[in-house]
Amino acid sequence: MAEEAMFDFIHMEAVSYVFQGGEKISEHTTVPRIKHVKPKDEAISKLEHMGFATGYRLVERLTRESGRYKDELDIMKYICKDLWVTVYKKQIDNLRTNHQGVYVLHDNRFRFLSHMAAGKQYLQYAPRYLAFTCGLVRGCLANLGVTCVVTAEVTQLPACKFQIQVQRG
């Protein structure tokens, strides 16, 4: 319990740090900012990058015992089962694919959202708690040889879905 709480709290702080930094800059400095980059997007991408770097290293450490995966689907199954259990202490509830490089991972009780609300309350704040995980998944896949874009979507807390779009070529 305690070590899980540690990860939860440090993630909470990372999110609030990144977002506060963005707000403070826009409020108090007179340095002109690049107009088309909003502080919010900047914070999200910062978190995503943190996740990416973490995932990239993490997957190296976690898969050191296992053999190679035979195809993309096998890798996705690894993400849904082993990775999710290691990081979030539960499996992904549902994995869907169109067999053309799009995978959708449903988590009906996502760890970072499960203590926040059950329903629509705080819905507008939910995306910032998913950015790190999107990066984490992208980083893992990148190190396993799959280049992709990962996005997340929430319509009702604490359920959310991650969409993985594999880029080919």
């Binding site: 709480a5 939860d8 709290f9 909470m12 999110v15 609030s16 203590h115 926040m116 609300a117 059950a118 329903g119 309350q121 705080y122 704040y125 708690y129």
Partner: peptide
């Protein structure tokens, strides 16, 4: 502890607004 302390959107020194906590 579970629904206020572990909820990043609940400020710890403000009246609790979380609906999940009340439920």
């Amino acid at each position: 502890v579970e629904y206020v302390v572990c909820n990043p959107l609940c400020q710890l020194n403000k009246p609790i607004e979380s609906e999940l906590f009340a439920a």
